[in-house]
Amino acid sequence: MAETEYTTTTPVAMETLWDFVKEMDHWAPFVTGYQHHEKQSETESTWTLKGDVGVLARTLTFRVRITEWNGPERVRFELEGVNEPMTGAGTFTLSRESGGGPAADAGSAPETAAVPAPAPHKGFFARLAERIARLLFRWRHGRVERPGALADATTPAGGDRILTRMTFHLRIDPGGPMAPMINAMVQPMLVPAAEQLAERILAAVEGRPAASENARSVQS
C-alpha cells in the first residue's frame, strides 16, 4: 500500500473552495500526469493519467466511484484500475479553523498527532525542531504539511482569522505479485502528486500562479 496525505490552509472561504472543487472539470487538469477523464454519472468517472514511477511512465486508466458526497465538508471516493491490477481510495476534506489553532478536522488521520502542534512566536530552534519533525514524519508516513500553512493559521492577525483547511488523502493498493515493488516505486511519487494537486487548486481559487517550484522542493 502506498499512501499520502497533504494538508494546507487558505484564506478563501470554505464555500468558495467547495464551489470550485465540487466540479471535477475544474481541477482535473491539475492532477499529475492528467490525460483525460470522462464522467459516466454523478458518482462514476473514468480517468486516464500518465503514471510516472521515476524510471518509467505508463498510461493508466482507472474508474473512480464517489462513495460519500457531503459538501462542503467531505468527499470520499474509491478507485479501481482498468488496465492495471490496482485499487485505492481517498478523501478530500474541508474545514474551518480559526487563527487560535487548528480546528477539529473530520478528515484527518490519527497520525496528525505525531506532528508537533506549533506554538506562536516560536524561536529559531523550536522552528528548526518542528521542521525536522515534519521532515521525519514525511519520510516515514508520506504525509506533508504545506510549508508555512500552519504558521499562517496560527499567526495572530488582529483577531480570529478564519481559514479553510484542506486535506487530501490518497491510498493506492497495487495488486498482483509485483505489488511490493510497485508500492516502493509509487510511494515517493504520491507525496508531490498530492501536494501539487492541492497547491494548484488553491492557486486557482486564490487567483495566483501555482507555486510549482515550492511543490517540487518538498519532494527533494
Binding site: 505479485p177 509485483m178 511490493p180 515493488m181 508500492n183 516502493a184 516505486m185 510511494q187
Partner: peptide, 14 residues
C-alpha cells in the same frame, strides 16, 4: 517472473 521476491525488491528500491 511471478514468483520473484518482490518484497525484497521493494525494500531495496525504498
Amino acid at each position: 517472473v511471478t514468483t520473484w521476491n518482490y518484497e525484497l525488491l521493494g525494500e531495496r528500491i525504498t
